[in-house]
């Protein structure tokens, strides 16, 4: 049973198909508006041309509990640029025809915008889905259903501490893909995934679901990608990309993320 799929979830299939089309699929994460909206747009375009399957577009938030210092600082810079949820939706609209755009946002900006309005506006803008890392399984219903009604995917996270019983319930509700958190802690390139526990967690997930699996948190090198690739459908890289373009903007920033992206594949 999949309670959140109340209607034909077109964008959901779009995200999942994109992940299945290449193996492993590369999903970059960029913070919208860091260093500026134009550079973010150019970087996403370049990554799409370079073969990224989908992009996670971060909505800047001042209190990002699931993020380490790199993404938290990128969010602060975007906020200092005055970037709001509406700006990110507009950017998603400009990119949505070229690559599936999954918004990555904390819950409070969504709640303030209005859950129904957020789902409607994200769909109208052309986004393909939304990831909300601080929305526990127990709290997802209203947003999950609103996104599904609007044909949008809602990938959900599975952590190293997630039990099998809980993973079953998460897998039932997730759409687009399941975001497998590679290790304890927050996002950031600082420490590598825990190989053995991760392998076990992925085996358990394959046992409970046929949905696509994408691994994220701490992935920053080609060696890590090679080690993980055979196990999963996709991998997510965020902090390492942000570190790569740090201090640059425009063409220089685009070239740097292209280089990192090429080195990872």
């Amino acid at each position: 049973m999949d309670a959140c799929h109340l209607k034909e979830p077109s964008a959901t299939y779009r995200v999942e198909d994109a992940l299945r089309a290449q193996r492993p699929a590369f999903i970059p994460y960029l913070m919208a508006g860091d260093p500026d909206l134009e550079t973010t747009e150019a970087m996403v375009r370049a990554l799409a041309i370079a073969g990224a399957a989908a992009v996670e577009l971060g909505v800047p938030y001042g209190d990002p509990l699931a993020d380490g210092p790199t993404i938290a600082a990128a969010g602060q810079r975007a906020l200092a640029n005055g970037v709001t949820l509406r700006d990110v939706l507009t950017l998603a609209g400009r990119l949505g025809r070229e690559i599936p755009v999954v918004l990555f946002t904390y819950f409070n900006p969504v709640y303030r915008h209005g859950i129904e309005a957020f789902a409607r506006d994200a769909a109208a803008a052309g986004a393909a889905g939304a990831i909300v890392p601080d929305l526990s399984l127990e709290e997802i219903d209203p947003l999950c259903e609103a996104l599904a009604r609007n044909g949008l995917a809602m990938p959900l996270l599975v952590a190293p501490t997630t039990t099998r019983e809980r993973a079953v319930r998460i897998a039932e509700r997730a759409s687009g893909f399941i975001y497998v958190v590679s290790r304890l802690g927050v996002t950031g390139a600082g420490s590598a995934p825990d190989a053995e526990p991760l392998r076990k967690q992925i085996t358990m997930l394959r046992d409970v679901t046929t949905k696509a699996l994408a691994v994220g948190f701490g992935i920053s090198t080609a060696d890590q990608v090679r080690a993980i690739a055979p196990l999963v459908d996709g991998f997510i890289v965020g902090s390492a990309l942000i570190d790569a373009y740090a201090g640059a903007r425009g063409k220089e920033a685009v070239e740097r993320v292209e280089r990192l992206s090429a080195s990872l594949r």
């Binding site: 509990l65 699931a66 819950f107 890392p133 601080d134 929305l135 526990s136 399984l137 127990e138 709290e139 959900l156 996270l157 599975v158 952590a159 190293p160 501490t161 997630t162 039990t163 809980r166 998460i170 958190v181 304890l184 802690g185």
Partner: peptide, 12 residues
């Protein structure tokens, strides 16, 4: 009230 936390903390 409720519980709005990243999945890693749900277990705790």
């Amino acid at each position: 009230g409720g519980r709005f936390v990243p999945e890693v903390l749900a277990y705790a």
